[in-house]
Every structure is written in structure tokens, then in C-alpha cells.
Computed example of a mutant assay.
Amino acid sequence: MKQVLLIAVAALGLVAAPALAQEPPPAPDRPLPDASQEARAQALFDDIRCVVCQHEAIADSPAVIAADMRQLVREQVAAGRTDAEIEQDLVRRYGDFVLFQPPVRLGTWLLWFGPVALMGAVLALLLLRSRRRRAEVAPLTADEEARLADIVAAGDLRRDPDAKPSDD
């Protein structure tokens, strides 16, 4: 009886563990009291990528780190920092990937020009392959033409065993 009870408690623990291990919801956002500063912060939220979701801006992301990043941006806007300074601070913390439009420099050339270079290489390869000269088939000699005419005239053509009457 004790073993059955112990197994039931262990099974309940295994079922409940994922629900208990989930990340707690982020604290609700507290907008800045100054409407112009809040509008500036909201504009910045749309330009900053969530480092967890990666395809969403922090304005739309439900992740806790996105809420932390929004709070950080609001604090820096309230402190009077410029948009460029705020973006530089986020790049310093999280790297160029945090911006939806990373700056063009040596380290980000692959991000900016890699897809264009890849498409250009594929296009050049397709053009080179299409311009190759196709091997021309040599015409039949007079003897070969005569032999072919004899075979066709004699009707000694071997029928395809898989052919249907409708294929004729």
C-alpha cells in the first residue's frame, strides 16, 4: 500500500513539475509619466529585437527579458540619454543582433551583403551553365539512313512489352 501511494505521489510530481518550472510572467510595464518620453521609448521598442524570441521586437515579446529590456530603455530615456546612446548601450550588452538594422561595418558585412552575394553567385552559376555549348548529335550517314529505312519498311520493330494499344 505504501509503495502504491509513493508511486502515485511521484507520478503526480512528474506531471506537475513542468507547470511549476515555467518562467513567471513579467511584471506589468509601467509607462513613463511624460508622454513624449513614453512615445520615444515606444519607438525604440520597435527597433530593438528580443534576444529570446529573435523575430519579435521587445514591444511585442512576452518574454521576461523583453520586459527587462523595455524597463531599461524607459530608465535611460527618463535619464535623458539619446536614442543612439541607448542603442549603443544595448549593442554593448547584447551585440549587433539586438538591433533590427545592425550598423554596416566589417563585422556585419555578412549580415548585410551575404544574401545578395549568394543570390549573385547562384545567378552567375546558372548563366554559365546555360551558356555551355550542348554536344551536337552527328547526323546519320547514308548507310545508317538506308539501314533505318529498311528496318522501318520491314516492320521488324520490336514492340514495347509494356505498351498499350492506345500508345500506338
Rank of each mutant, 00 (worst) to 15 (best):
Q42P: 05
A11C: 02
L126T: 00
G13R: 00
V51E: 02
P26G: 13
D68E: 06
R40C: 06
V104P: 04
E56Q: 13
L14A: 05
V77M: 04
D83R: 05
R105A: 14
M69P: 00
L99W: 11
A117M: 09
G95Q: 05
F45C: 09
P28K: 10
Q37W: 10
T108G: 10
V137T: 07
D83Q: 11
R81Y: 15
D89A: 15
A135S: 06
A27M: 14
A84S: 09
E75Q: 10
Q54S: 09
E23N: 06
L12G: 01
S36D: 14
D29C: 14
A124F: 07
R134V: 07
A84G: 06
D47P: 03
R70M: 10
V122P: 00
V104S: 09
A11Q: 00
L125V: 01
A57L: 05
A27C: 12
Q22D: 09
G114E: 06
A17Y: 04
A84V: 12
Q37E: 11
Q37K: 12
I65K: 00
R132M: 08
L106I: 11
L12M: 00
A121P: 00
F45T: 01
V104K: 10
E23F: 04
Q54C: 07
S130V: 03
R131K: 05
L118S: 01
R132T: 04
E85M: 13
V137N: 05
Q42S: 15
P28M: 13
S130T: 01
P31H: 15
A57Y: 11
P25W: 14
E85N: 04
P28Q: 14
G95L: 08
L111I: 04
P18Y: 12
W112K: 04
A138M: 09
L90D: 08
R133H: 07
Q101F: 15
V51C: 04
A124Q: 01
I65M: 02
P139W: 11
C50Y: 01
R40A: 07
D60P: 03
D60L: 15
Q71H: 09
A66R: 00
I65N: 02
R74V: 03
R132N: 01
R49S: 12
E75N: 11
G114S: 11
P103A: 14
V104E: 08
L110A: 13
Q71W: 13
L118C: 03
V137R: 10
